[in-house]
């Protein structure tokens, strides 16, 4: 009893700023703050480090190859005897695969999100959603062989002059691969649209379809945009499927029936060889990586502005 009273009195006493108890407390707070700061700073530092390395390793490349050549030359053959350094074929291949993938993933992802969010009850959703998300758990190398060994021969029955390695089948399979990313995020966005907006629409005599497409999707547009941006980033960064099924031939073409090479596939191809450190081929990996970073950054910025522009308060 006496002990408790003593403790209480000690706790409630005001101590001077330099009292050891207060100094200790300040020190502890400072340490905690420092640890939290370091944890938060680590991801920023890693990002800065990656950008720094990409830029510093790319700079020597641009001393040999002019930026104009890099951006306008239509061939990419850094390892040939007469090397050409035009990034366009790789950018083209990347954008084309991404485009084909999005053509599959955006409609299917949005529709499955709408179905899951607006049309099903919780029982069906609890079964369908995990199955759909399983698509994301399949290793990408499996998708690659799926594209090469199953999808391409299937497509060749419809399009006879389709080459064995082509953008179309790689793009389609990447599209299927990113459906769960899009549908899952888009569904979350749609489900967070408050029920009173839906009721307002139904009360006006709208059908479920009209309510979904005229009220819920516009209201969830900002979240759905994030889902699309994530899908785009995944498609641009996808490596294994294109490396296996798209042919690793840097063609400057917009024809998805042709083989092509994406930036990521080039990096894989070249990294596996034994390039001497500091050679121009070695530097070209960094340049390709930097280009990829700039591209994804661009899409993220566009997405950020779309999100801001269409953010709805409800």
């Amino acid at each position: 009893m006496a002990n408790t009273a003593k403790k209480t009195s000690k706790l409630s006493t005001f101590t001077s700023a330099n009292h050891p108890v207060r100094r200790m407390r300040r020190f502890r707070e400072m340490m905690i703050e420092l640890v939290l700061f370091l944890a938060a700073a680590s991801s920023v530092l890693v990002t800065v480090g990656i950008v720094w390395i990409l830029v510093s390793e790319s700079l020597p490349f641009f001393q040999t190859v002019s930026l104009v050549e890099f951006l306008t030359e239509t061939q990419w053959t850094p390892l040939f005897a007469e090397p050409k350094y035009g990034i366009l074929p790789l950018v083209c291949g990347t954008l084309l695969t991404t485009f084909v993938a999005l053509l599959v993933a955006i409609p299917l992802g949005t529709i499955s999100a709408t179905f899951l969010s607006e049309y099903t009850n919780s029982t069906v959703r609890e079964i369908v959603k995990p199955v759909l998300e399983l698509l994301a758990a399949v290793p990408t190398v499996v998708y690659g062989y799926f594209a090469l060994i199953f999808v391409t021969p299937l497509l060749q029955k419809i399009i006879p002059d389709l080459s064995g390695f082509n953008v179309l089948s790689a793009g389609l399979v990447i599209g299927i691969m990113i459906i769960p990313y899009i549908s899952s995020l888009a569904e979350d966005a749609m489900r967070s649209v408050p029920g009173y907006l839906r009721e307002g629409s139904f009360a006006m005599g709208a059908s479920r379809f009209q309510t979904s497409f005229r009220v819920v999707i516009p209201a969830a547009f900002s979240g759905i945009t994030s889902a699309y941006i994530l899908g785009i980033s995944r498609a641009i960064g996808e490596t294994m499927v294109v490396a296996i099924a798209a042919g690793m031939q840097p063609n400057f073409t917009l024809n998805p029936l042709q083989p092509a090479e994406t930036i990521t596939a080039y990096i894989v191809q070249v990294s596996m060889g034994d390039l001497p450190h500091g050679s121009i081929g070695y530097q070209s990996i960094y340049v390709a990586g930097l280009t990829l970073l700039v591209m994804t950054l661009m899409f993220n910025v566009i997405g950020y502005y779309l999100k801001k522009k269409y953010r709805e308060s409800y």
Binding site: Y196, L197, G200, R214, V215, A219, E312, S313
Partner: peptide, 10 residues
Amino acid sequence: MVFQKPNPFP
């Protein structure tokens, strides 16, 4: 129908 909470569409 008009609801308790104003619910204009976005």
